[in-house]
Every structure is written in C-alpha cells, then in structure tokens.
Simulated assay, not measured.
Amino acid sequence: MRKRLHLPAIVAALVTAAGLLTAGSSTPAAAVPATIPLQISNKSGRGDALYIYNLGTNLATGQQGWADAAGNFHAWPAGGNPPTPAPDASIAGPANGQSLTIRMPKFSGRVYFSYGQKLVFKLTTGGLVQPAVQNPSDPNRNILFSWSEYTLNDSGLWINSTQVDMFSVPYAVGVQPTGGTTKSTGHLKPGGYNAFFNSLRGQSGGWGGLIQTAPNGGTLRALSPLYGVETGGLPANAMDDYVNRVWSKYSSQTLTVTPFTDQPNTKYFGRVSGNTMNFTNSAGQTVTSFQKPDSASIFGCFKLLDAPNDLVRGPISRTLCAGYNRSTLLVNPNQPDPNNANFYKDGITNQYSKKVHEQMVDGKAYGFAFDDVGAHEALVHDGNPAQAYLTLDPFN
C-alpha cells in the first residue's frame, strides 16, 4: 500500500493557474457557472466498455468526493485501516464512435477513464487511495486507464493532458470559451502511440523497462522514469553522469536563474561548493542551497529538488528540475532556457519525456512535474468556459 500520493501534474497546473491569475483576469467571477458541460467523445476504435470517474476536492467546502453525471457532488464516507471499498462512482461512458456529455462542478480533481473494467478505489482514514500501478499488487495494475486533471473555479477552467505518472491511453482535452473558438491539446501525431512505445523499447540505457504489459502481452502503459527508478525498471543512476558534469561546470562558473518571466530583474546565482549548490540573490545573500540530486529527485522534482510553495526556493527548484530533465543546464548558464531546440539533446536526458513531446501534434506535454516551466505543458485555460472536451483518440 503506498503512503504517498504523487500528484505533481495537478500541482504544476495549479501553479500555472496561479501565474495566469496573478497576471489578471478580465472575466468576472459571475461568468463561471456552478457546473459546465464536459463532452466525452470515444474515438478509440475499441469495442470494450468505457467507464468515467470525476473525482476531486469540492472547492466550496474543501471536501473530497466525486461528481455524478449531472455534476452533483458526493462526499466520500469515512475510510478505514485497512482501506475499505469506496462507493461506485463510475459513469457509463460512450461506446466507440459515440459521445456523452456530463457536468463538471467547481472541483480540483481528476477525470479518470478506463477500458473494459471498472477501476478499484478504496478509502483510508486519510482519504481516497488513487491507483498506483507501479505497485505490482495494485488491483488496477492490469486495467487500461488514464486520467485528465482539471481545476474549475470562479476564475475559469484549467484542464490538462498529463503523462507525469505514466503514458497510456491516447487522449486530448479542450475548452470552448463563451462565444469563442475551442482550444485543445494532447493529440498524438498519426502513428504516435506505437512510435512512442517502439522508440522507448529501442532506447539504450534500460528505458524499455518502463513499459508494463497485460497478462496477454498487450501494452498497457509506460511508467514515468521516477516510478521506473523506484521499482527497478530504470537504473537508479540514469542521470548521474549528467549531474556530475553539471556539478563540475558550476564549480567554476555561475548558473543564473530568472524564475519569473514577468520579473526579469529577479535573479538568483548558483555556484557549487563541494556537494552543495548555493544560490545567492543580487545582494550576495545566500537564499537557498541544494544537495547534489539523484535521478529520482530529478525525475520526480522532489526530495533533493523539493519545490515548496514559496517565492524563492520553489521557483528556483522548478527551474532546476526543468533544466535537468531537458538537459539544458550545460548548454545555457541562464535558466530557464527559452530555446526548445536545446531540449533533450544530451545523451543523458529524460528520454521518456523527450519521446512523449516528440509524438505530440503541438509538441506540448506534461512529461514531468514542472514541464510548465516555459509553457511547454499540455494545458488549456479559459476564464469564461462554455464547455470542456475530453477526446479518447485511436491507439493506432
């Protein structure tokens, strides 16, 4: 039973949302109704049954629960130890070639979708236990599923396509503004699903170990490299060579981090001393320090690259995390690197995220937790949403 709920993508989405809101919103709060429609279109080409779940936190009350097809909120009952079965929150999804519209309430949560079988959710005394398929004993291990993350509040809708935890079901999300044109993201290129898995299998360095298959041999998903390291599917030293070179470079040079695009004069300066990278501000005061990160810290953007919700360490850590995963820290001493032509060029890089981005029509994805640094994430937002979309795309 896992004890830690890893939700980096939605954290990243909310940080992005916070940044957008800081910049100002021209939409009055009253413009966003209590619920909006979510049209779910099944274009998967699969004949098995589809199940939908809308789970999250009620932003009005802070309670965790689920929403039914009409958008009505239901709080989870008390859980237990050991965990007890959660109420069946599933909504029968549309058949292949069909669409279904449900209502989304003001939530911060996830829309799960599974093929062929319902997902298994349980409740502990601390709340909902999400699927954790990196655990071989998880009851959802052999179910084909994925999810989108969203926040709908008085300032609008943010909805993303995420691969932070795994790459599995091909899908895209969209939002149509009132009186406007639909914005969407997450579509794979033609043949992109197979191309991703074939490329990952052929990648040297053990990256094919991220792939999980069903008992019949069919492909289910590729785990994120963080989970690969945690489960032994990916070598724990996958990023060590790159980190060592970064450490060597910034022992004699300065790494400049400018974490806020709207504050170009807010800069922090990093230098390595021994096993520590110290950051100073423009006045020469040390503001935070980082120990030499391991691969798990880089892939998960946590532990030695923890990013608290503050205005100094968190933004610096987010920038470092993006630089390590994209392998831009050696080619540009000024971070974040705005030139995506530099991304993933080093032989030691986050190959998983690289390959996800390569197969996206618009090049955008949540390949790791802070892929929104520089706005490379698969996220759409509107302050006056009329309707949201979730499109389940073909696998081939």
Rank of each mutant, 00 (worst) to 15 (best):
R4M: 08
I10Y: 07
A12H: 03
T16G: 09
A18T: 13
T22F: 13
S25M: 09
P28F: 04
P33R: 04
A34Y: 02
T35K: 13
T35R: 12
L38V: 10
I40G: 07
K43Q: 15
G47I: 01
N58M: 04
W66G: 03
W66H: 14
A70K: 14
G71F: 06
H74E: 00
A92Y: 04
N96D: 12
Q98H: 10
F107Q: 07
Y112F: 15
L119Y: 08
V120W: 00
T124L: 05
T125Q: 12
V129I: 04
P131E: 01
S137L: 07
I143L: 01
T181M: 06
S184F: 02
H187T: 07
P190F: 05
A195Q: 13
F196V: 08
N216R: 06
R221N: 09
V229M: 13
A238S: 15
M239K: 11
N244A: 09
S251L: 04
S251E: 12
P259N: 02
F260G: 08
Q263E: 13
Y268G: 09
Y268H: 10
P308K: 11
T319A: 02
R326F: 05
T328V: 15
P333A: 11
G347Q: 10
V361I: 14
A378I: 08
A378G: 14
F395T: 06
